[in-house]
Design a protein around this nucleic acid. Structure first.
Lengths: 215, 215
DNA sequence: CAGTTACGGAACGATCTGGTATCGTAACCC
DNA sequence: GGGTTACGATACCAGATCGTTCCGTAACTG
């Protein structure tokens, strides 16, 4: 659980004497960074605000990271991904369970809010994008894929032809709702995705003749 | 076509003598704003950059708008929405036609790029969000809805139960691909949306559909 | 014609941000 | 204990950006 240093962070020479870096400050600073990131977005995020919000001095930040970009990347990498896939016994139940997670009350640095806050910065920072992909996107997709594959194993549905695309549906529609429509992601909304899109799609078996000729 | 002033723009006292505001400068400035917006995003967009890019002085901008926010909102409102819905005779053809538009070569201030650039700024600026909704989102949704309704009128598909959600699918998946996956929206991708999600969803009856006509 | 205003361009002061340095205190190694 | 380093806090500087102002020139009104 306790991660010391050397995670691709700022240069840290081998010190031998003197007071140690307080590892608990790392977590507090990263939490503050993610919280502010979700609130005001990456571009308006300032190092001063992170330090103040964490009750720390700026020097404490620059002792660990070389700047805002590295701090945010590290905060993403430390971010605990979603728990393992639910296993309620049915595809509908598993998807509902995931829906409840996605619409969690806004207390934690919710993945969706972090996604929105990072949105405009992703295209121009490869490191940021990589950390974003590794800690937010990929875990979501893995969990969703596992849920579908387990439904296939149960014989509940036929193997999903284009799993990558189907797995994109929930996060894409959630992001669209948050970003473009600026509406709440309540259980009712996610329910409508499950019942109106996902389940009809994967339950209705492979569709007509011309749908899949070129694969 | 020629819009003079009074569009909720900056305060413009009734002047009587002297040189007139050059209306052609308005369009040039708005085009430059949208182009830069698509390139670097709203937060990093600067008034100086817009002026320089348009070959104008900053004074020319502040004579028309009170700042960056008002300029971008006005640029969005002047932005010509997509042409009318295509009418190829079949749902698949219409959707393909829309796909070609969405994946247009990156020359113009493409709607998708503007969407990405505006993303992080939308939650905190209601005026920006309203203009965004009115000129980018709503037209897209109207065109898509029209395409589906015409397919229903032709008897090609059954009435779509949750049209609002189905109409969100294409823009949501396109946004997700651009923003989260940072991948290109090429015709192949949009084709996979049409063939793998949209058509199966609206064509598939609960079960067997061997009698699907060949379009 | 004289007066007024827009235009591109440049300069200006004010504000904000990033990153460094400093200070007094506290924690750690030898 | 002596030396070293982290910590929170503050001050400081360099650069970017904003919005304004001024300039010489051009265009329009009366």
């Amino acid at each position: 659980m306790s991660i010391s240093e050397g995670d691709g962070r700022a240069v840290e020479g081998d010190r031998h004497g003197g007071r140690h870096l307080d590892a608990s400050r790392d977590a507090v600073l990263c939490d503050a960074a993610l919280r502010l990131l979700a609130q005001i977005g990456y571009d308006r995020l300032t190092v001063d605000a992170i330090a103040t919000s964490a009750g720390a001095g700026k020097a404490t930040i620059y002792r660990r990271w070389s700047g805002k970009a590295e701090l945010v990347v590290d905060a993403l990498l430390r971010h605990k991904p979603h728990p393992v896939a639910p296993d309620t016994g049915s595809l509908r139940g598993d998807l509902r369970e995931l829906a409840l997670r996605a619409s969690a009350p806004t207390g934690q640095p919710l993945d969706s809010s972090v996604m929105v806050g990072l949105a405009s910065a992703l295209p121009r920072d490869p490191d940021l994008r990589a950390a974003f992909e590794e800690r937010l996107v990929a875990p979501h997709r893995r969990v969703l894929a596992a849920v579908f594959e387990r439904a296939v194993a149960r014989g509940e549905i036929a193997p999903v032809a284009n799993l990558d695309l189907v797995v994109s549906l929930i996060p894409a529609l959630v992001l669209y709702r948050l970003l473009v429509q600026t509406q709440e992601v309540d259980p009712t909304f996610v329910e409508s995705i499950i019942e109106g899109v996902i389940l009809p799609l994967v339950l209705a078996g492979p569709v007509s003749l011309q749908s899949t000729p070129t694969y």
